[in-house]
């Protein structure tokens, strides 16, 4: 091998070495990630309980899902997480980053504080927030409400309030990463742009609209995609914050990934679980393609 290698051009040699190093992750990803992912497509057309033989059933699993009102509720929940969480979290993150960028003193400390939740495990966070939402005198929020004589709120026990209540810690956890990305985007805008605008007499609104926001577009698109994917895949927070990990009350907070988990590992119905996985895959793919097209238009 060494004689064969020594006869190759420099670029060829570098390529050979690169492939040697890449071989290990390629084998790993093929065996552990890509193959099961591809297999999920065929599994979604089968009936299988993890131990017995697989039976091909055609589109039976999909038909079954389409007829299931709980599945439609779960799909609705999933999009509700997205539709509420995406605009709120991006807006908050931008406002925080924009203000943080103007602060000179203590910027590092504040940035670290905002980033901290990003480092915390979702499970620990979910249990802390679960405690926050308890009735008084245990729960923090209801404790405050009673302090001001405001009526107690059911939060996680109400079908109307539960989903937003789950979303709040999700947004809070995502904020740190988003703020850091926005801050990096803001810092990449040359100071001279703002100085030139200042001399030209532009007001802060014109500067924001005509300079800051357009130049921050790449950061926005990046966070749009990553946050969308994160919200569509929400699972561990819901699993840990709702009673028994059921996504309740009455499936009010259950997202698609939790439903997949329950199909697969509570009901041992691998076919339905895979069918839902394929649906989630199609949704994620569609959203990513749409956003990439939006980006390319600019």
């Amino acid at each position: 091998m060494s004689t064969w290698l020594s006869r190759q051009t420099l670029a060829r040699k570098q390529a050979v070495w690169a492939w040697i190093f890449l071989a290990v992750p390629i084998v790993y990803f093929t065996a552990v990630r890509f193959w099961p992912a591809v297999d999920a497509f065929s599994l979604s057309l089968s009936r299988w309980n993890l131990v017995g033989p697989r039976h091909f059933v055609g589109l039976e699993n999909y038909r079954h899902l389409a007829a299931d009102p709980v599945f439609w509720q779960v799909l609705g929940n999933t999009f509700e997480y997205l539709a509420l969480g995406l605009p709120i979290s991006l807006f908050l993150a931008f406002v925080i980053a924009y203000q943080l960028d103007r602060v000179r003193t203590g910027q590092g400390v504040l940035r670290a504080l905002y980033f901290l939740p990003h480092l915390t495990t979702a499970t620990a966070m979910a249990w802390v927030w679960r405690w926050f939402y308890q009735p008084a005198p245990v729960g923090l929020f209801n404790g405050w409400l009673s302090l001001f004589g405001i009526a107690q709120q059911p939060f996680l026990r109400s079908t109307a309030q539960a989903l937003p209540a789950v979303l709040v810690p999700a947004i809070w956890a995502a904020l740190g990463f988003q703020v850091v990305i926005f801050l990096a985007g803001l810092k990449a805008i040359p100071r001279s742009y703002y100085e030139a605008a200042e001399i030209d007499g532009a007001g802060s609104w014109q500067i924001l609209r005509e300079i800051t926001l357009p130049l921050l577009l790449p950061s926005f698109v990046f966070l749009f995609i990553t946050t969308s994917i994160g919200l569509l895949r929400i699972f561990d927070l819901v699993y840990n914050i709702t009673a028994g990990g059921e996504g309740g009350p009455l499936n009010a907070t259950k997202p698609l990934v939790l439903s997949i988990y329950q199909s697969a590992f509570a009901r041992m119905d691998m076919g339905t679980a895979s069918a839902q996985t394929v649906i989630l895959f199609v949704i994620l793919l569609a959203i990513s393609l749409l956003q990439m097209r939006l980006l390319r238009q600019r």
Partner: peptide
């Protein structure tokens, strides 16, 4: 400015008219 400070996302005409728009 030394770096010219031209806004990359605006046309030349919009760059030149920025101050007047303000």
């Amino acid at each position: 400015f030394q770096s010219y400070a031209l806004y990359p996302h605006m046309t030349v005409a919009r760059n030149m008219g920025f101050g007047l728009r303000a």
